[in-house]
Amino acid sequence: MSNFDVRRGARVCLCLVLLFVLLWGGWGLQPAATAAPTGGRYDESQVKAVFVYNLLHFVYWPSSFGAQEKSCRIVVLGSLQIAENLKVLTAGETFRGKRVSVELCRRITDVGECCILFVGSEFLPEMSVILRHIGNRPVLLVGEGDGFLSAGGMVNFVSRDRRVTLEINPEAARQVGITFNSRLLRLARIVKPSH
């Protein structure tokens, strides 16, 4: 046993225990309420997931795209929370008469046919591999983080002043035949390719 000052140690421990009890008991584990969740703040991943869900209705894919597919797939690369939220949002939903399915992938090679690919921030350094894998298929590339658009992304979520804002690179999308609803474009910061 080390000869550390028992009194000082006890005091520090007591303070910690007290604080712990107060924080746990007082606030932490309040039961879920029935009140409508208005006026509060939401988890960032929830808001992003709702944006991704809305993109289905404000983005136009080439009419021939995905004609053979049975479902409209949204693939989330890496981000577990976004995928879980999207699964809740799209449960039972259809898009152009097809069932909407959400899948979480951890590998770029698992990303098959899809209409939206959400690139989690941890995959940002591998955008070149992702772009090579997608080729010129009309897949809407959605991401989060600085440098996503300059790396070839199309829609980027930027957190600014405790709000999620949108950045769109319409040129990158146009090259594969994807266009955006003007209402969506009005809300977003438009990023033009630098070269």
Partner: peptide, 13 residues
Amino acid sequence: LEELVGVEVTSVS
């Protein structure tokens, strides 16, 4: 969409 842009969020992950 317009309302969504105004929603306050808590920090990332």
